[in-house]
Amino acid sequence: MNEITGTTRLMATIGDPIQQVLAPQEINRLMAARGIDAVLVPMQVPVAGLEKAADGLRQMSNLEGVIVTVPHKNAFVALCDELTPEAARVGAVNIVRRLPDGRLRGGILDGLGFVGGLRGNGIDPAGMRVYVAGAGGASTAITYALGDAGAAAITIANRSAAKAEELAARLRAEFPAVAVAVGTSDPSGHDLVINCTSLGMRPGDALPLDAERLTPDQVVAEVIMKPVETALLVAARNRGCRIHHGKPMLVSQIEMMADFMLQAAP
């Protein structure tokens, strides 16, 4: 990593918890490789402090932007002064550019990153029946990207059925050719099973779905990057499933994230 000086440009990743993030390592390696005097640091911001934190970001003239992670991806939408068309469509942000006048411009790259990570590992979601655990910001971005990628069916399962129904209704309107349903904890009958919740990040977390219903013909994927193998992935491997780790989603969007933060808005 480059030496930090008074001319170093700042970037951050904001979430709560924050110990699990891998973006600082990836972005800082990229900055060093590009010869750019910029650094990204993690910032732990609780939900109650998010609005004040956003106000503070606006005042930092040497700040280029922030990566937004759990649990702020939906809430940060209302704190942005403008959104990319994709972020407005999805209703979530995971990347924010601080414009020279202090305004915050939000974008969403999670969906592109996740599908890119799948394809990079030889998994094409086109024509697949997909089960998604969770209905938050990551789930929304990923399900929209799966619709764009040609998934045949998408099932949303969430602890709050109302939230799952809301996302399902949006997907049906956006992708009339995709069979969209609200499901239970049972992931059987799907080709691709994705955990888009935070369950698995902490030791002792409950599984996000009924792993006993997994079958060897399924691909089970995570968005969680740390631990590398969550309890769900371990259970899926034990059931004979092909597993897909969370890190490819980040790796496939790192350059897009850096470019979004370091370039002026069009």
Rank of each mutant, 00 (worst) to 15 (best):
P71Y: 06
A75Y: 01
V68A: 08
D55N: 13
P46C: 08
A54D: 04
G65P: 07
E64P: 04
L40D: 11
P46A: 09
N74V: 15
G49V: 04
M60E: 03
V39F: 15
I67V: 14
E51V: 02
G56F: 01
I67W: 08
Q44V: 12
V47N: 03
L40Q: 14
N74Y: 09
K52W: 12
V39R: 11
S61P: 05
H72D: 05
A53N: 02
G49E: 05
M60C: 14
V45D: 00
V70M: 11
S61R: 10
L63M: 10
V66M: 06
V39S: 12
Q59T: 15
N62D: 12
N62H: 13
G56M: 02
V47Q: 07
G56N: 05
K73H: 10
R58N: 00
Q44F: 08
G49Q: 09
K73E: 02
V39P: 08
K73T: 08
R58Y: 03
P71I: 01
S61C: 11
Q44P: 11
N74K: 15
L57A: 11
Q59P: 05
V68Y: 04
L40A: 11
D55H: 14
V66C: 09
G65H: 08
A75R: 06
G65F: 10
L63T: 03
D55I: 10
E64S: 13
R58M: 04
A53I: 00
V47Y: 01
V39M: 14
I67G: 13
P42M: 08
V68N: 04
M60D: 03
